[in-house]
């Protein structure tokens, strides 16, 4: 019961933070809805674990917690890869900036 309340508080906080970021125009409406759906789904899974078990059975997995774990690992892997790609792009732009600075005094003589 304690973990259910604790996780609910975290998800509620995340929900509030999501819409605050939307108001600050850091998130688009669609993104805010997707994040909200994620937090609400997490809340449902915490209070009604049978829902995840039923979903797990639908796709041939025995336990609901395993279903949540598989989804989490997949999503996190994609997110980590996405972060690496974003970092790589940023790094390339940074290099271009450093290069531009290094080359600014090169003359042709």
């Amino acid at each position: 019961m304690i973990i259910q309340f604790a996780l609910s508080a975290v998800f509620l906080g995340a929900l509030v933070w999501t819409w605050r970021r939307f108001r600050q125009q850091a998130l688009r409406r669609l993104e805010a809805f997707v994040w909200s759906a994620l937090w609400l789904a997490a809340g449902v899974a915490v209070w009604w674990p049978n829902v995840t078990t039923r979903l797990a059975n639908l796709v041939g997995i025995g336990r609901g917690s395993d279903f949540v774990l598989y989804i989490a690992v997949t999503v996190l892997t994609v997110l980590v890869l996405h972060l690496h790609v974003a970092h790589d792009k940023l790094s390339r732009e940074f290099t271009e900036l450093v290069r531009h600075d290094a080359l600014k005094d090169v003359d042709r003589s």
Binding site: F94, V98, R99, A102, L103, V106
Partner: peptide, 25 residues
């Protein structure tokens, strides 16, 4: 001597040097 203000790696330094060499004919 050209200078990268921040360390960017050997490949980046080679590209900068190559661009400078091209610029210098």
């Amino acid at each position: 001597v050209l200078r990268h203000a921040v360390n960017r790696g050997q490949g980046a330094a080679l590209r900068t040097g190559t661009d400078a060499a091209l610029k210098r004919g």
